[in-house]
């Protein structure tokens, strides 16, 4: 039997589709290699492999791809144009496959989702399974099981967060942004560290049931059409009455965020700050900004009491 290993860069879309990918390959019995958390070395090689104007998250991604280069047979690079009808994604995700192919010399397996052109995620995963030598039935059942698992895990995560928010006695901060910014060691990790020092309870905007997007989103924006930004906006609108402050995390220079942040900042009525992260961030500057933000919230709380 030929054993192949698939490398997954543990950044960018990984934080969105972690459960789905790992379960899918797990069900098919394929060995998966993950890249480690972002460190200085990965970041540097990422910067070397990408354009200086590319966004920080993309630079980090290229670093992860470079890390995996000799450690697996194939690297999984998805290509997503639209994941919901009449909605779009950042064009980086549409270019991801061709871009990775052009910039680094690696073997790639990919899948292509473009719901607007009737290419669904299910069909894409079946094709992916087939390209790895599995039958249609095997691939489909693996996908469906993985999808089910993803749903269960998401629900559990949401319940834990909602419980925590109810019982929290400390300052409640919503960390809002794309999951690949929030959970990345280099981007969100620094912020989480400082917040923990300040003894604040942290909640994440990506833990949210996206069924409610049409209900929550119009409070902040009506016309936004980037799926991930819609979810983020809706989640902020949903958590706004339940938390004390919001920290908006953006990687420089994110295209969709540049506009949707403006709407969020103008339409949210509790303390909110926008941290824009690039590769040359100083930790001290970050600490000062977050600490003073927490101070403002504490003062406000005292006045309200």
């Amino acid at each position: 039997m030929n054993e192949i290993t698939v490398g997954i860069p543990a950044t960018l879309l990984y934080y969105k589709y972690k459960e789905l990918w790992l379960n899918f390959f797990g069900k098919l019995g394929i060995k998966v290699v993950l890249s480690p958390e972002t460190d200085k070395e990965i970041l540097d090689s990422g910067i070397k492999h990408s354009l200086d104007e590319a966004c920080l998250a993309m630079k980090i991604y290229m670093g992860h791809v470079a890390y995996l280069k000799d450690k697996c047979d194939y690297i999984l690079v998805p290509r997503l144009e639209s994941v919901k009808k009449c909605e779009k994604l950042c064009t980086n995700f549409a270019a991801l496959y061709d871009l990775t192919r052009a910039t680094s010399d690696v073997k790639i397996i990919h899948y292509n989702v473009d719901v607007d052109k009737n290419k669904s995620e299910e069909e894409a995963f079946i094709k992916l399974g087939k390209s790895l030598g599995f039958s249609r039935v095997e691939s489909k059942s693996a996908y469906l099981l993985a999808k089910q698992n993803e749903r269960i895990l998401k629900k559990a995560k949401l319940d834990t967060q909602l419980n925590k928010i109810k019982n929290s006695k400390k300052i409640k901060i919503l960390l809002a942004g794309h999951p690949y910014n929030l959970y990345d060691k280099f981007i969100g990790g620094q912020i989480v560290e400082v917040l923990e020092k300040c003894e604040a309870d942290i909640f994440y905007s990506d833990i949210y049931d996206d069924v409610h997007v049409p209900r929550d989103m119009p409070k902040i924006s009506k016309a936004n059409y980037w799926t991930y930004n819609r979810e983020m906006i809706a989640s902020i609108a949903y958590y706004e009455p339940q938390v004390d402050g919001i920290i908006l995390v953006t990687s420089f220079p994110c295209g969709p965020d540049s506009l949707s942040n403006e709407m969020i900042l103008r339409n949210v009525h509790i303390p909110i700050t926008n941290l824009i992260m690039d590769e040359e961030n100083s930790t001290t500057g970050l600490e000062t900004r977050i600490e003073s933000f927490i101070d403002i919230i504490e003062e406000r709380k005292k006045i309200n009491e």
């Binding site: 990408s50 104007e53 590319a54 950042c90 270019a95 061709d98 871009l99 052009a102 910039t103 295209g255």
Partner: peptide, 16 residues
């Protein structure tokens, strides 16, 4: 323009 995401995605390929 600076920060044009689609073009940033295309430039490395054009360069190649």
């Amino acid at each position: 323009p600076f920060g044009c995401t689609p073009e940033i995605g295309a430039i490395p390929i054009i360069r190649k």
